[in-house]
Simulated scan of single mutants.
Amino acid sequence: MMWCLMLGILVSCGDKDNDASPKETAELDYQPTTQGSTWSYGGSTPYTVLATGKTKMIDGKSYAEMETKRGSETGKSYLLKEKGVYTAIGMDPSLGDVALTFLKEETPVGKPWEQSNVINGIQTKMTFTIIGKGISKTVEGKTFKEVIHVQMNATYTIMGTEVELGIPTDYYWAKGVGLILTDMGQLGNFPLLTYSIK
């Protein structure tokens, strides 16, 4: 379940006009990666995220580096945006180098996409569905507009039997801001408390 929590730091980098300023570029993104941008999340295990401004070439593509601090632990992850498709690597050490596609801006509402991986020897399938686009969402008293609501359901294949996790996870991404809420139902919520986009 830790990887679900770590999805709260997913970010992206995008194909933009060369003459666009970093601020203008960030305003078009559903998770900016401009250097020095920060996000602080609450919940049972609060954490902060920093966009370092560094990049890393992975499979011939330039991923943006993000740094996450949770308690005394600090970790790095790498994120990519290509034509509205957001992919992350290294969100959780238990996932290894799995590239997880967590948001597809152009996918119609209600049409799912799936991703299957073997994680720690277990076949895992994650199904993502956009529940709403262009909606408003209030988090910690602040109302965000141009929000995309993505729901993720997971199944695991153990000894030939596919088992559902049973509890969907809902993510809310605000344009120009990033992830504003991770809602794991009875397992807890992780709201955006403060943020600064550079």
Results as ranks from 00 to 15, higher is better:
K111C: 00
G8W: 12
T87I: 07
D92P: 00
K56M: 08
F102G: 03
L50H: 07
M6L: 02
T124C: 08
K61L: 13
P191A: 08
K16W: 15
T194M: 06
W39C: 04
I130Q: 05
L165K: 07
A26R: 01
G160C: 10
P32Y: 10
W39F: 12
G8T: 06
E24S: 12
L100A: 02
W173Q: 04
W173P: 00
D17C: 06
N189G: 01
Y41V: 04
A26H: 03
G8A: 12
P108K: 07
I158F: 15
F128K: 00
W39E: 01
G96I: 05
G185K: 11
G188E: 13
T143Y: 08
S94V: 08
I158H: 08
K104L: 03
G188C: 13
Y78V: 00
A26W: 06
G166W: 13
K142T: 13
G71C: 08
K198A: 11
D17E: 14
S37E: 01
I148T: 00
F102W: 15
V177M: 07
S94L: 09
C13E: 02
T68G: 02
G8P: 11
E67T: 12
G141K: 15
V118M: 11
T68E: 10
T169P: 00
S44H: 13
K111V: 15
N120Y: 00
